[in-house]
Design a protein around this nucleic acid. Structure first.
Lengths: 237, 237
DNA sequence: GTATGATTCAAACAACTGTTTGATTCATGT
DNA sequence: ACATGAATCAAACAGTTGTTTGAATCATAC
């Protein structure tokens, strides 16, 4: 009943049980999802007592939040740092859209490429969680993302003054989807026969970036031309 | 122990309890996910007895499979019908990539636009399920998709003979991600302040199609030009 | 040493999970 | 009228869930 205080003194080493639990939970959430991961699975993998989670975090829900908080804070901090630098370098001029997209999604892919410190594991979890029905997880994610999304959208609005903001919003949404699947889905849906054997993040970055920028720069709907797409261009049966 | 036989005779009307359960389960799975949806929630919403699910389907897992099977079979049947028609019209010539993409993703969006017969509900569920950790659901989805994916990939390979197949595969993957989020995520992640208030599928189709085709046609990575993207173009901090 | 408080532990808690039982109801064909 | 078997039902099943308890252990400060 005292899960607020922590670490007897403020020194570095840290009791480590807390962190072992977080790491175990993170990995298990990727493998089985939130609901299917039980407290006993977590504490067992973390070599801790079943009561340790409630002692250190208060509840399973609070543990889930903390798993996301520790990584997401860092991810969005990095994103905003890159954006800050770009804007400083531009000295007030609008940024190139490609730079903005690279700052937002490239930073995420970099984290996903880090297999040493658990970044890869977490990004797979994050990709899955965007579509998580669980209410409080969604709300927490939205809060944690609010500032970064606002800043990056504002940058895109400035970079593309002629494009309706609603369209930019949609395309940002589409890009989020493509990236999430690129990370979370490579081993998830083995739809595509035996491929993705490498899942090499080194080559994923340029591939995804080409696709995202192509989508972002595509002609706006209703402007004709490409494949006559749009209203009624395709019929079913 | 007799969940194999069904419908006393083969006449149309159908006992309806079975379908009420499927509809209730479908809706609840969207709201809460598989694990968090209990048998009692399902039978309660369907106005059926708790034992009805095991009687009609055998188990909860078998119910989940049936929820997907009845819709997915129809969706991929339609997709293949459109592809068949296009290929017949082309008389052996390769199809335009835009046509292929429209056939695959447009058909899905059409189903998502159908709010009357539960298509909308199901497509939201489907989008979420691509990233579902649950093993047997993933395997079932892969089997159900196998034929359609194979046919459409083959069509894309023919349509884009100069593009490495691996690249086409990746972009197909990215497109799947963008579409899934477009459908499943509009009300899921309310990251983007108060927008998506409409989620109007009418206008979603041309928007998504522009984005997808833009991504599909983007210059291949490593071919320089766009925003100098690719290796090392972005740095963190 | 003793005292203090954070941490760990085995055990138990009530609530809920998917599933099964055996009787009962219902519709149908003879 | 009866018989047959599908469908429904209330009740119970054994197992698991997240959480709590109170004592035991540990490190630190005096």
């Amino acid at each position: 009943m005292c899960f607020i205080m922590r670490a007897p003194s403020d020194r570095q080493p840290a009791p480590e049980t807390r962190d072992r639990i977080l790491d175990a939970a993170e990995a298990l959430f990727v493998e089985h999802g939130f609901e299917a991961t039980t407290m006993r699975m977590i504490t067992s993998r973390a070599d801790a007592n079943i009561a340790a989670v409630n002692y250190h975090f208060g509840s399973k829900d609070a543990l889930i939040q903390e798993v996301f908080r520790r990584r997401l804070t860092e991810l969005n901090r990095r994103r905003l740092a890159v954006l800050d630098r770009l804007e400083a370098e531009a000295q007030g001029a609008p940024l190139k859209p490609s730079r903005i997209v690279e700052a937002f999604f490239g930073t995420a892919l970099e984290m996903a490429a880090d297999t040493e410190h658990g970044g890869h594991t977490f990004m797979r979890l994050l990709g899955r969680t965007y579509t998580e029905p669980n209410g409080f997880v969604r709300q927490f994610l939205a809060e944690e993302y609010a500032e970064a999304v606002e800043r990056f959208l504002a940058a895109l609005y400035r970079a593309l003054p002629d494009v309706p903001r609603e369209e930019i919003l949609w395309r940002f949404h589409f890009m989020m989807g493509a990236m999430s699947y690129a990370i979370a889905g490579t081993d998830a849906l083995q739809l595509f026969a035996g491929t993705f054997d490498d899942a090499d993040p080194e080559r994923l970055l340029p591939r995804l970036m080409s696709f995202l920028l192509g989508g972002l720069r595509a002609p706006l709907p209703g402007q004709g031309v490409p494949g006559e797409n749009g209203k009624g261009a395709h019929r079913t049966q």
